[in-house]
């Protein structure tokens, strides 16, 4: 049955943020499933719950109600340390503002998820070099992030997201801080990696153009799935 197992199963997920006596429901019963190799665009207006959903799917936060199953692991049953391990092994993140660590070189940044896994440093750096070559940054490996352009930083961030061969990559507005040329280049890259490495890709975006790269769109509104466009694979 392994072939039928979804990469991500989201069932009736609710998320309520409470502060004192007031509370805000960010998600109100969201459900969908992602299969291996999916490229899904998560769309909707600001405040609709996209980022919250990405954080829940990325095992960075816990739902108020409902269930998330990532590659067979029910996230609700895992402890903090197990979640951290799961993130290291199965999830990659790409952020709008790149979030490379300024004190590490580009190569060290890319190797970081593997280093956190305590793999031999040499091996980690070699794997990082391979990916940096793949994203066209083989001449910038010893540079610090502050010495790179925005596009280069985001490509390095993409390399970091996939270096650990994750099953799922979550990208939050990955082109939001880039000009259109660099944006396109990053999206092309993500698409290629999605295809080549059979990585499931979820991109949260406002942009129709970005969503155009995806095979499926999940549109959220007021914390609910308003519609799903495109066939489930």
């Amino acid at each position: 049955m392994a072939g039928n197992q979804p990469i991500l199963l989201v069932e009736d997920v609710e998320k309520v943020y409470s502060s004192g006596s007031s509370s805000v429901a960010a998600l109100r019963g969201v459900g969908f499933r992602l299969e291996p190799g999916d490229f899904v665009a998560l769309m909707g207006p600001s405040g609709c719950g996209k980022t919250t959903l990405l954080h829940l799917a990325g095992a960075m936060d816990r739902p108020t109600a409902g269930r998330l199953v990532l590659d067979g692991d029910d996230l609700g049953t895992l402890g903090e340390e197990e979640l951290a391990r799961l993130r290291r092994r199965k999830i990659g993140f790409v952020f709008q503002f790149f979030n490379l660590l300024p004190t590490l070189t580009v190569r060290e940044n890319v190797a970081l998820p593997l280093l956190l896994e305590n793999l031999p440093k040499k091996e980690c750096l070699e794997r990082a070099m391979e990916l940096l070559a793949r994203v066209g940054l083989d001449r910038r490996t010893a540079h610090y992030p502050s010495e790179l352009s925005g596009g280069e930083m985001q490509r390095a961030a993409v390399a970091r997201a996939v270096v650990g061969k994750p099953r799922l990559v979550l990208a939050d507005e990955p082109t939001g801080s880039l000009d259109s040329d660099n944006g396109t280049r990053v999206l092309e890259l993500l698409k290629e990696l999605n295809r080549e490495l059979d990585i499931t890709l979820v991109v949260a975006t406002h942009s129709e153009e970005v969503a155009g790269y995806a095979s499926r769109r999940i549109v959220l509104r007021d914390g609910r799935v308003e519609k799903t466009v495109g066939a489930e694979s």
């Binding site: 951290a84 799961l86 993140f93 979030n99």
Partner: peptide, 15 residues
Amino acid sequence: RETAVLRFLGATVGQ
């Protein structure tokens, strides 16, 4: 922010 990123990348609290 860097600490938060490390958490996203799978760093444990112990690390």
